[in-house]
């Protein structure tokens, strides 16, 4: 339990000085389900405090890719990977790396909001910390306050922190609660797997604003089905097609002047 460090001052000090550092390097990543190869050697660098959007048609490997980054992929039976994913100079697939500790550095928000139905709002936020063995009440209180404030949920739920369950909230609120839960354990990277796919348009906009805000403190990698969303929120965009990385670069350039004709066809809606 020694690796838990909680620093509750947190969000104020921006890490903008780090902007431009490469946070995560993916090198020749291949992912398999059984014998079937679904990602064919992807290499990409992710820059600290940037938002990267991953786009591509259904079944192109977007979700698989993002799930290899926090080693959730390998929990599926028969799933494995080849290649390297390097976080801050350390290969997270190194045999000595413990996937549980990797996931403390790389948090994730899922497509369907999944707050724990048997826990209050408060306990949902600190679920990760509490179960990792953290029990200082005042510190936990402070973390709940700062994280809920961060996701813009504090005012809405302040009265009900202990009274209501996480699942009593609306869909958009639940998703923000899940984001709060993910950032409460202070990861370096936040993965989002279509975080707005099950939300209504106004909740979607709130989450998009939140993503921009989060990128001040975290490196964000988000899968999205929605190209407008990628264009609105991301710094970089990655286009995957049939398990290959087709194009990866600044969002603006990728949408306005793509290098690859497949990218162009996809973003203009000719397929997918």
């Amino acid at each position: 339990m020694s690796e838990i460090k909680i620093d509750s001052s947190v969000f104020s000090e921006k890490k903008s000085s780090n902007k431009g550092n490469i946070k995560l390097q993916v090198e020749d990543l291949k992912a398999f389900y059984g014998k079937k190869e679904v990602l064919h050697g992807i290499s990409a660098d992710f820059v600290e405090n940037e938002i990267t959007a991953i786009i591509g048609p259904s079944g192109c490997g977007k979700s698989t890719f993002i799930r290899t980054i926090n080693r959730l992929h390998e929990l599926t039976r028969g799933a494995k990977i080849e290649g390297k994913i390097v976080l801050d100079g350390y290969d997270i697939y190194d045999p000595s790396a413990n996937p549980v500790l990797v996931r403390r550095k790389i948090g994730m928000v899922f497509q369907k909001p999944n707050p724990f139905p048997n826990m209050s709002i408060y306990n949902n936020v600190v679920a990760g910390l509490k179960l990792q063995g953290h029990s200082n009440g005042t510190e936990l209180d402070e973390i709940v306050n700062t994280t809920l404030e961060k996701v813009g949920l504090l005012e809405e739920v302040e009265e009900d922190l202990h009274r209501k369950k996480g699942t009593d909230l609306s869909g958009g609120q639940q998703q923000r609660l899940c984001i709060a839960r993910a950032i409460a354990v202070r990861p370096d990277i936040i993965l989002m797997d279509e975080p707005t796919a099950s939300l209504d348009p106004s909740s979607t906009l709130i989450i998009e604003d939140l993503m921009k805000d989060l990128s001040k403190d975290f490196t964000v990698i988000a899968v999205t089905h929605n190209m407008q969303q990628a264009a609105r929120v991301s710094d970089k965009t990655m286009f995957l097609f049939n398990g290959d990385l087709i194009e990866f670069g600044a969002t603006r350039k990728l949408f306005e002047k793509p290098d690859n004709h497949l990218t162009e066809q996809y973003i203009t809606g000719r397929f997918g």
């Binding site: 926090n70 929990l75 996931r103 999944n114």
Partner: peptide, 21 residues
């Protein structure tokens, strides 16, 4: 399954996820 995955993504071990969630 999504609750298992939520637990893992928070950096909980398999047994913590099983017994606490």
């Amino acid at each position: 399954q999504l609750y298992d995955e939520a637990g893992y993504a928070l950096g909980l071990s398999e047994s913590q996820t099983a017994f606490s969630i």
